[in-house]
Amino acid sequence: MSDWFAQYNYIVVIILMMTGLYIVFSSRNLIKKLAGLSVFQTSLFLLYITIGKVSGGQPPILLEDKSYGKDGGGQSLLSGPVEVAAGDAAFILPGPGSDVLYSNPLPHVLILTAIVVGVATLSIGLALTVRIREVYHTIEEDEIEAADFVYNLEGTAD
């Protein structure tokens, strides 16, 4: 069954990316264009996260070789204060002899940066849309071009 789904995610992600791109290309409304750009961007995140998945893996947060709330002999410490100090236990690492498998953390880091930068560019685009609306009283591209022509805002006619 998993053979059949080996490339399934990529195909769906490509369909989603092209849907977002189609919204950007086909719509004449500036806010709808930005929504399409956002869909396009999120679909790209899906592609990266798909690549970083390791089957049978778990989130890239190292497990500690230590059971909290129990002492070395496995006795519960709950009768007294539980002291948990960070970093004093060995982590369970992937490698020879280890049965723990983690997913790849690098695509996650790249996409974390991309999400935040995407919101920054989206806010700039929306601010530009609001400014365009102040001048043209519309956010439809066709009407903006018509107003450009009628009121000679591009300075091409005398």
């Binding site: 995140f45 996260i49 970083g52 893996g57 989130p59 947060i61 997913s103 695509p107 996650h108 996409i111």
Partner: peptide, 8 residues
């Protein structure tokens, strides 16, 4: 979340 990218 289902693909282990919890931070993302």
């Amino acid at each position: 979340v289902s693909l282990d990218a919890v931070d993302v």
